[in-house]
Computed example of a mutant assay.
Amino acid sequence: MLQRIQTVYLILTAVVSAGVSMYLPYGLDKNAVALYVKTEPFLLGMFLGSAVLSLISVFLFKNRKLQFVLGRINILLNFILLGVFVYWSLTVSGETYVSEKGIGMIIPVISIVLLVMANKAIKKDENLVKSVDRLR
C-alpha cells in the first residue's frame, strides 16, 4: 500500500539523497570553491545507492521484513557516508581538500532520521499484522 506513512518517509529519503545532495555543497576547498557531490564519483554512488534502496523499499510493501532489512542497510550506508564526511573534515592538516564544511554534510543525518522513522512505522505495521493473525 503506497499510502502508508513509511512510504512518505522513504520517498523523502530518496529525494534528499538523490536530489538535494546534488545542489548543496558539502564543503569548500582551499580556493573557496564549492565542492558538490556530482563531481565525486564515490559520493555520488553512495547517495544514489541510498536513494535507490529507498525507492526499492517503497515497492516492497507486501514483504515488510525485507523492507525493514533494506531500511537497516540504508541506515548503515548513510552512517558510512557520514563517517566519510567526518573523516574528510577532521583530517585537515594545514589546507587539504575540504577546507570548510558545507550544509551538504548533514544530508546523511537527515536521511538517517527519516529512515529510522520509516523503520518504526514498518515495525508497527508488522506488529499489527501479527496481532491480527493471533486472533484468527
Rank of each mutant, 00 (worst) to 15 (best):
M1K: 12
L2S: 12
I5T: 14
Q6Y: 15
T7K: 09
V8I: 07
V8A: 00
L10F: 07
L10H: 09
I11L: 15
T13D: 05
A14K: 03
A14V: 05
V15H: 08
P25H: 07
Y26T: 09
D29Q: 06
A32G: 10
L35N: 01
L35I: 05
K38I: 09
F47N: 02
L48T: 09
L48N: 13
G49I: 00
S50Q: 07
A51D: 06
I56A: 07
S57M: 02
F59M: 11
L60T: 08
F61I: 04
K62L: 08
N63G: 00
L66I: 05
F68I: 07
G71C: 04
I73C: 11
L77Y: 06
L77R: 06
L77E: 07
I80R: 07
I80T: 14
L81Y: 08
V84S: 12
F85T: 08
V86G: 02
S89F: 12
T91L: 05
E95N: 15
T96E: 13
V98A: 08
S99L: 10
E100D: 14
G102F: 00
G102N: 00
G104C: 00
V109P: 07
S111K: 06
I112Y: 08
I112W: 08
I112K: 01
V113P: 01
V113E: 04
L114V: 00
L115Y: 02
M117Q: 10
A121Q: 01
A121Y: 05
I122D: 05
I122V: 03
I122H: 00
L128E: 03
L128K: 14
V132K: 10
D133L: 04
R136M: 08
